[in-house]
Simulated scan of single mutants.
Amino acid sequence: MSTNYDLTLQKKTEILLNEHVYPMLKHYPNAEKFALCQEIKQTFYRILRNCALFKNAAAQHKMPYLRAIDAELQYGKILFNISRDQRYITKKKAYFLQMQMEELGRILGGLMRSVRTY
């Protein structure tokens, strides 16, 4: 039951992390390097980890990994809102990141629907 959605979710997460999040985090103040920055990175790592676990899980055990990814996406949005409120990122950058996270959420929703039908 491997679909293109699971690969797409993982690849788009990697691209978002490497091309947008890492460069953005370099501009955070030093006081946040081991707090907010670390939490944002860990959120993305957990998403990628759950993508890998999802791909290798038996069909009847896939849904918990998708729910974990959904929770991490929601948490990531909250962290980006905090970054915006603290003025570590601009409103435009925060909006862009929110849209990217919502795209990942739509892909995830498709995966959840396909897992439920099995």
Rank of each mutant, 00 (worst) to 15 (best):
M1R: 06
T3R: 13
L9K: 00
L9P: 01
E14I: 13
I15E: 10
I15D: 07
N18T: 05
N18D: 10
Y22D: 03
K26H: 10
Y28S: 04
A31F: 07
A31R: 15
E32S: 09
K33T: 06
F34G: 07
L36T: 04
L36P: 01
C37D: 12
E39V: 08
E39A: 12
K41Q: 13
Q42T: 12
I47K: 11
A52T: 09
L53E: 14
K55I: 00
K55D: 03
A59S: 05
Q60I: 10
H61I: 00
Y65R: 01
A68T: 11
I69Y: 03
I69W: 05
D70H: 10
A71C: 11
E72H: 15
E72F: 11
Q74R: 13
K77M: 13
L79N: 13
F80A: 03
S83Q: 00
R84M: 08
R87Q: 15
T90S: 15
T90V: 01
T90G: 04
K91I: 07
K92T: 12
K92Q: 14
K93L: 09
K93R: 06
K93F: 02
A94Q: 13
F96W: 03
Q98F: 10
Q98K: 08
Q98R: 12
Q98W: 05
M101G: 02
E102L: 02
E102D: 07
L104Y: 01
R106I: 11
R113S: 13
